[in-house]
Nucleic acid binder design. Structure first.
Lengths: 141, 141
DNA sequence: CAGAGATAGTTGGAGCTGTCAAATGATTGG
DNA sequence: CCAATCATTTGACAGCTCCAACTATCTCTG
């Protein structure tokens, strides 16, 4: 039973991944752009290094990605006072706008979800909370 | 409440996507390979055309992908009796083995899931069934 | 304090995956 | 025979990724 529910969840996950790709395309964003926008907090610039680390990618890859974002006016580089080696990356006003629009569309719940009862929602919510707190580890054996 | 549950679900979905990518890499498979393996039924060869259609990609893209799969010995092309223009794509024994291994690891439920009660599982299952039947459409306006 | 070494980021070069468009070959069916 | 259909080849390009070399800056040590 757990297995069956899990497969369903993966199926939903895959569907949603496809949908997300469509939304990104609508907004003229590549997967890389999306990943970056979601990772950047409007109120809290990050450094190139911390971004590269959280993306588990090479530093030069991050340079490349931020270049692309900067070309589109979504982010801008800044300096960090106290250490002139490090550069910060912050969302521009347009970046903030784009991120909002992206999230708004991404997080819009599906129609079917609105027809669910309170009890069902709570049960699902609880289970998902448990699952979300786990980092992709699997069970048995 | 529906919105919150939905965000959680997306989060879980994203985590799982990352996990799936890791599994694929372990097995030396690219995302394209995975997509193809999951789409191919051991007992039912498909034609190039039908595959391209279900992947929503160009026919030449499918040729390219099947070339890669064939190089790895995961699939083989065959002819269709009655129409020598069309070619079928079928999993090789190694393809079947690889697909099994992939699915086994992909569908292994997370630890946390095994600690859930029967009632919770049923509630989640029901909701997921509803969500899985919907094709990525969203609700309100 | 000077110089050595560490650190942050960039540049340049390369490679792989995935994608399409256009031209081509093979086969079919009217 | 002619037009339509299925698949492949070829050529191009975007997205992402790494590695190695380089620049600027900081920090530690003698």
């Amino acid at each position: 039973m757990a297995e069956e529910a899990w497969r369903l969840l993966l199926k939903v996950a895959m569907n949603q991944f496809g949908r997300a790709a469509g939304i990104a395309q609508d907004l003229g964003l590549t997967p890389g752009h999306v990943k970056a926008l979601l990772a950047l907090d409007p109120d809290q610039p990050q450094t190139m290094g911390s971004l590269a680390q959280s993306f588990s990618c090479d530093a030069s890859t991050m340079t490349w990605l931020v270049d692309r974002l900067e070309e589109r006016g979504l982010v801008e580089r800044g300096g960090l006072k106290g250490d002139r080696r490090v550069k910060t990356v912050a969302l521009t006003p347009e970046g903030v706008r784009t991120k909002s629009e992206l999230e708004e569309r991404l997080y819009e719940p599906p129609r079917m979800m609105l027809g669910l009862g309170q009890g069902e929602l709570e049960a699902v919510h609880k289970v998902l909370q448990v699952l979300a707190s786990e980092n992709g580890q699997t069970g048995v054996k």
